[in-house]
Each structure stands twice: as structure tokens, then as C-alpha cells.
Design a binder for these strands. Sequence first.
RNA 1: CGGGACGUGGCUCAGCCUGGUAGAGCGCUUGGUUUGGGACCAAGAUGUCGCAGGUUCAAAUCCUGUCGUCCCGACCA
Length: 579
Amino acid sequence: MRWSQSFIPTLKESPADAEIASHKLLLRAGLVRKLSGGLYTFLPMGLRALRKIEGIIREEMDRAGATEVLMPALQPPDIWQQSGRYESARDVLFKVKDSVGREWVLGPTHEEVITHLAASEISSYRQMPRTFYQVQTKFRDEIRPRFGLMRAKEFIMKDAYSFDASDAGAMASYQKMYDAYTRIFARCGLKAFPVEADTGVIGGSHSHEFMVPAATGENDVAYGESDGYAANIEKATSAGPVLPTPSASTGPAPEKFPTPGVVTIDELAAPPHGVEPARQVKTLVYVADSQPVLVLLRGDDTLNEAKLMARLGATHARPATPDECSSWLGARPGSLGAVSGVPAKVVILADETLRRAMGMVTGANEDGFHLRHVDVERDIRVSRWLDLRTVKAGEASIRSGEPLRIRRAIEVGHVFKLGTKYSEKMNATFLAEDGQRRPCVMGCYGIGVTRTLQAVIEQCHDDNGISWPVSVAPFVVCITPLNAAPGGPTLSLAERLHDELAAAGIEAILDDRDERPGVKFKDSELVGFPLRVGIGEKSLAAGEVELKPRNGPMLKVPIDQALDRILAWVREHEAALNP
RNA sequence: CGGGACGUGGCUCAGCCUGGUAGAGCGCUUGGUUUGGGACCAAGAUGUCGCAGGUUCAAAUCCUGUCGUCCCGACCA
């Protein structure tokens, strides 16, 4: 490929609407252009890198025994109604109407479609295990698209779905995908690691997300440095808070005291009251699937909303408004408590940390008053004790006791044991060996392909631009004749090398532009080709060409060895990425 | 959805406060000189200042609305 025949519009300056490095580089290196918020056109270099990632994914899916299909992006709403997600996923569903007014859905994912297929095509245990996958464009009505391809309205995803006749079979299918994912990200040159993930409404214990550590990620991961524990913060647990919870009773009964103007934990902790946060009971009012619930946490803890929803099996949860708090409890946020005045219909959930907590301080359900000497088990009608708190850095790992750390990460993949949630609702059943009809046991497995592309850039770049791993580089080799005069000796050698590389199966881009050397050097580093082959009149006179790895020092090699040295360099770096 | 910021040539931005001829750098075109790290000189082209109203003799500038973009938030009462 000649540079002049491609389309690589590089930019010296970053467009103003890009914030993070990978987003800026996507634009600066001419990989993508924005059409609208969350919608991007892939230009040749971006498309080539994307195809490389897709290629790796296809190879590994096939190796793992999955089989490729392609499902419609446009889907009838009735299958979404059948699965119940027409309601529960309504926030992300794009809906469109056709010319006669009938409604359609743009698929954010394909569980419904594949389960519909399985319902009609799989009828016997003999047809399983079976794993289908596709690489498809997905649509999500993101509240706030951001960071380029990272969170977009339209994006490319690899999704796979496994069907098994038994739980054990489903676990084996899950493990195959888990292993495939590990290989895929390694081959993409990404340092991605699996973490335990929240299973949300669906329940079950088997879900892992593959995370790429990055300060710009949108997820927090809690992990142990050496014990291997790693979990999404939404799921993470610990041995408990570092500070112990007060457990000595300070009085025989709760006692009301005035706290005018005090509405926050910090204000109650400050003079004149001086009640340290660990001695306070934080009372939150939530509305979960239209039901009011009270959530009790220690004052210095934070509610983990994902845990709340998971424990309740709720699909939507939101904090109650101050007016709702007033009408249910008789007080405004800041003076709420669960000791008295809680209507019987309101469920009270308390975090495990508060078990046996004594001598606590909490709101009195009367504006301007709090209660002290509260023994939680004695004084509060707790309906359920649950793990609802968000773990904090420094707390002991449940695995080894070492202090947990927390870091930001980008989620690039998710493997999930679904069970029979969809197969039951959509009647995807089979006849088992024992003659019984049972629902298929399913798993689903996603990789954000476009997001993975950007994650690679986020992880592989420097001040000069992108630095692609050879496996996903749009071209591995950039041949740079410093003088591209037609018919001249540098261009002739460049062309010869290009053709010889092509014959050896390596696609190189030849920078045949009539540009000054500095421009070519800067561009090749910005776009990030792993190996640049420089051919100038000086080096030619010395009988040499220059091999300049993107991340290493320049090597001068004799012209007649150039091809072999380039091939060796590429093979070596390809091999390094193969697990 | 709440808060904030910003919309001026292809890109990055100045001008707006204090209304009065629309600017710079990069990019682009032409000619010349250059040619191993984003060249230099000269001459040029490119704008209904996001859009719609309003105020005014006069609006990029002030006011209102609207659309778009980006950031923060949408757990800690």
C-alpha cells in the first residue's frame, strides 16, 4: 500500500472536543472522524486496526469451538417483551418506527434473537453444547456518550452465546470462553485481567469482566497485590472497615437530643456534637422498583447501589426525593432514622457492619433532632442484614487479609453464566437424555471491539503518538524513502522492499509522499507503525537501510540483509504476543 | 435529567467585558528557494461569527429562546 493512495489525515493539533490521550490520538492519527456525539466514521488506518482485532477474536472463537453467525441489528419488539427487557432495558433501547408506524428496536445486544433461534432449532441434548458468536454493530441510547469510541451510541461488539444441556456443561462452555478471552487480549498486546463482576438482576456466581488498567477507565476494581483477589467495586467485598464499629452499649434506651441545622455526617462529626462517623448510622431512603426501602449503613460507609439492586433483585433503584422522605418518615434527609416512625410497609435493610452495633447515633425522624444510645439490633426493626457497603482501599482482603487496593480500569470484555433466565422465558427447551423437557442452560460473552481498539491506544502510546503492538497495527512496517522522486534510487529500493515483504506475507505501507523527512518521521510515529524502514541517500551511499522500531533504537543494516532482518524483527515481535 | 463551559475559515484559538471595516497560527492554492526530524519567502483563496427572534442608527459583541459539543454529577441525607 502506498501512503498517497490511502487516506490518512493526520492532525498537528488535537481537536478541542477530545479529552483523553487515546481519543486525541484516534483523531490526530487519522483513524476516525466524528459524525455526531458517539458516532464515528472509521478511516482506513482505524479500520485496518479494527479488522486486526476482529481477526484475532475470530481465530480464538473458532479455536474455542464457537461458530460464527450474523444476526439482525434491527429487531421486533415482541421478543424484548417476552424476555421482559423491553421494560428493564428501556433506558438503553433505541426504538424506531417504520413507514406504517410499526415499532422496531435497534439491538443493544442479542440474547433475545439467539434464544429465539435456539427455541426453534435446538430440540435435543444431542445438539449441545453449542456456542454461537457474531461481530455486530450494537446500538445503545447512552445517556452521555464520551471519550470517543469508549462509550458510544453505536459500537462494534463481539458477542457469543452458549447453550448447554446441564449446569456442568454450561460451566465448561464458560471456561472455554474465559480462556479464549485471556488469549485474545494477550494477543492484542493488552494487559487485561479478569475480575469478579456483579451479576446484577440475573444472579448466579459466575461472571468475570476483563479489565484494562487505565486512569481514564470508568470502572473501579478492588484487588489484592499478591493474593489474586480482584473484583469490580460493584461486587467487591472485604473483611470489613478498618475502624471497628462501636459495640458497647452507652444507655438503656435511645435518647433524643437537638441538632439544629445538622444534616450531614460531617456536621454531626464536628463540634459541638463530635460524633465520629463510625458511630453514626446513615439512613438512606431508596425507591427500588417503586417500593420504598430504608438502607442503613455506618456513617463512614458508602452505599453500593449495584449490591442493593442485586440483593433486592430490582431492575431500577433511585434515591427518594426529600418530599417522599417527608411523607413516609416525617422528616427530611439529614434527620432520618429507623428507630421509630417507619411505616410497617417500608422494608429496612441494614449493612452487616451494623450487627451488634451499640451506642450509635442516628436521625430521630424529626427535623433538627438525632438519637443517641442506639443499639441497632435492640432498637431497629431490621428486615434483612446484607452486604451493601462499598469497599475502601486499605481494607483486608477476604482471601489473604492483605490490604486491598483500588484502581481504575476499562472494561473490554465480560463473560457471564446466564443460566435459564432467557431460555425459560422464551421457551428454548430441549429433550434431555432422560426424556424430560428442560430449558437450555445459557452463557453470554461480550467483547467491545471498538472499545478494545481504543484501550490498546490508551495503553500503547507516548508523547509522539500511538505505538501499536504488531498484532493490531494497521501496517507493521512503514517504508520511508526520504526522497520519493519517481524513478530515483531511494524510491526504487523502497518499492523493491515493499514487494518482497508483500511476497513474504507482510503488508507494508510505503510513504511515497513528496514531503520533507521530518513530516514523514512525525507522521509514521503519530500513526504508530511498529517498524519504520528509512531509506535515504546517505544510508544508500553507505550501502545500508535504517530499521527504526517505534519503541527502540535505530539499527543500520546492509541493504542485502534488509529483508531478512525486517522479517526476523516482525516474526520475533509477533511471537512475543502469542501465548 | 441537574450543574458548568464552549460554538468565530478545514484545525487550534484571539476578538465579546466597554456594540461601529472579522483577525492570528496551522492547513489549503500558485510561484520560487529548500530537502535526514512537522522548512522559508512572496502572492492568494476560504467566514451568512451554530440557528431563530429581540434591543439598537448599528450586533460576533447586549437580551431571550433553541440546537450542538465538551466536562462534572446523577450513591454518602
